Amino acid sequence: MSYYLVKIATTTLLIVAISEISRRSTLVGAILASVPLVSVLAILWIYIDTKDVERISTLASSVFWLVLPSLALFFVLPRMLKHGLNFYLSLGLSGAITVVCYFLMVSVLSHYGVKL
């Protein structure tokens, strides 16, 4: 149980730290947020838990392919905000568009025989 608390605390502290740093410097916050910390932490926790390098390899490959559709959020959100749309509406629509892009990417990859 304490191991899970360490995992939760470590992950939470990183997210809160990035959020606080972003308030002071959007550039530094963006650099830290763009580093795939969540993916690296997931890979680390899986390795510690299972030592299964094949699972880690599969996860890393899947993350690679799924980073591409996730970029839709970062493309659409600022454009909606610049056009004066409400923040929460912009975030929700950007998220919905990103979900659609994920489904499209998985469908395209499946068509070409790439299994995630």
Score class of each variant (00 low, 15 high):
62 S>P: 10
48 I>E: 06
6 V>F: 15
116 L>D: 04
17 A>V: 13
33 A>V: 00
116 L>K: 01
80 M>A: 11
62 S>L: 14
74 F>K: 06
63 V>L: 09
15 I>N: 01
47 Y>N: 03
72 A>F: 12
33 A>M: 01
28 V>S: 03
70 S>E: 02
3 Y>S: 15
16 V>H: 09
108 V>L: 14
78 P>F: 05
106 V>W: 04
23 R>M: 01
9 A>L: 14
42 A>V: 05
14 L>N: 13
6 V>D: 13
21 I>M: 04
3 Y>G: 15
46 I>E: 10
68 L>I: 07
48 I>F: 08
70 S>G: 00
75 F>Q: 09
28 V>H: 00
19 S>W: 12
76 V>W: 08
52 D>V: 08
83 H>I: 07
81 L>W: 08
114 V>F: 13
30 A>K: 00
87 F>I: 13
72 A>K: 06
72 A>S: 12
76 V>C: 08
54 E>I: 15
60 A>M: 14
4 Y>S: 15
39 S>K: 01
26 T>W: 00
113 G>R: 04
19 S>M: 13
33 A>S: 02
24 R>S: 03
16 V>M: 10
73 L>V: 07
109 L>Y: 06
82 K>C: 09
95 G>R: 06
72 A>P: 06
42 A>I: 02
5 L>F: 15
87 F>R: 12
93 L>V: 11
5 L>G: 15
2 S>V: 15
29 G>V: 01
18 I>D: 04
30 A>L: 00
82 K>F: 11
49 D>V: 03
82 K>R: 13
88 Y>H: 09
73 L>H: 04
30 A>F: 00
22 S>H: 05
5 L>K: 15
66 L>V: 05
85 L>C: 05
10 T>R: 11
31 I>H: 02
105 M>F: 10
86 N>D: 09
52 D>H: 09
65 W>I: 08
42 A>R: 02
17 A>G: 11
94 S>T: 07
17 A>D: 10
81 L>N: 07
22 S>L: 01
106 V>E: 05
8 I>H: 12
91 L>C: 12
52 D>Q: 14
53 V>E: 13
11 T>C: 08
83 H>Y: 11
102 Y>M: 12
38 V>D: 03
76 V>N: 08
26 T>G: 02
112 Y>I: 06
15 I>F: 05
